[in-house]
Simulated scan of single mutants.
Amino acid sequence: MKITSGTWLILGLLALWEASARLGWVESPNWPALSQVLAALAADMATGELPARIGGSLWRMAAGLAAGGLAGVLTGLAFALIPLTARLFGLVVELLRPIPVPAVIPPLVLFLGLDDPMKITVVALTVFFPVLTNTLQGVQAVEPDSIAMGRTFGIGPLRRAAFIILPAALPAILAGFRVALALALVVTVVAEMIAGEQGIGSYLVLMQFAGRAPEMYGVILLLAALGYTLNRGFVALERRLIRWWYAQARQAA
């Protein structure tokens, strides 16, 4: 297996981290060596608490991603295909889009409490906007000839949307989901840090207040690996779902 230049860079940075702590280049009780961080991470994983928290965070992230993604696709199709909906609700969407996620959490806590419904709602709101934007762009990029051909063969509006427009817009929609996936993980952790006692975000804050630096850095490394794995898994799924699109891109190149 060939090691890429990016992998060598990461390994070099990790080695520098180990050396900076072992050789005293960084003199701080809150800067443990990488080996200590990995040992603490392995110990936390062995207890079973950390895997349970990771599972809970991934479930909340997945629920919010599914809810927000579905709402984004349906809204994007409605905005693109039914101009009246864009005129009625477009301004509302544009007003809500720039609101920072941390600003949304306090009112949601008042309405939904500190449990899973609040965290899932925050993730869904975050996911909604990139999926909506990409769905709109994907639908607008569909060739008019394809839609006209559907009308010629007597295909109704709903069937045209489901079998002609949606498949043609799928590459753009999946690109929106790929962006939303990273945002969903970030927002899930942030929501858990701000509110509640569950999940990997809450555990990270707990380790900070307890002054357990190795465990804290171990969780950060774990989140980096988790985000990378989720992204690679989604890319593999995307290549299977729109294999035809990648084939066309290779032929065009």
Rank of each mutant, 00 (worst) to 15 (best):
L108A: 06
R97E: 02
A210F: 07
L206D: 10
M45S: 09
V139I: 12
I10G: 06
V190H: 07
G69I: 00
P100A: 10
L84R: 12
A161K: 09
T85N: 04
A162F: 13
R232W: 06
L58C: 13
W17A: 10
T188H: 06
L34Y: 00
M207N: 08
P144G: 14
L237Q: 05
V219N: 08
G176K: 00
A63I: 13
W59F: 12
A252F: 09
D115H: 11
A175P: 03
T4K: 14
W17K: 10
F163Q: 15
P29W: 10
P167V: 14
L9N: 08
A224F: 09
A252M: 10
G150N: 02
L221D: 04
N30T: 12
M118D: 07
G176N: 00
V219H: 07
Q198N: 11
I147S: 13
P117Y: 04
Q208D: 11
A62I: 06
A52E: 12
A19E: 02
R240V: 03
K119Q: 09
L226F: 02
N231M: 14
V127G: 08
L170D: 08
P157W: 12
A184K: 00
P106S: 01
L226R: 10
L88S: 09
S146H: 15
P107G: 08
G12F: 09
L23Y: 11
K119A: 08
A43D: 14
A182S: 13
M45C: 12
E143L: 11
E192C: 10
L84Y: 07
V139Q: 00
T75V: 10
L9K: 09
I194K: 09
A40K: 01
T85E: 03
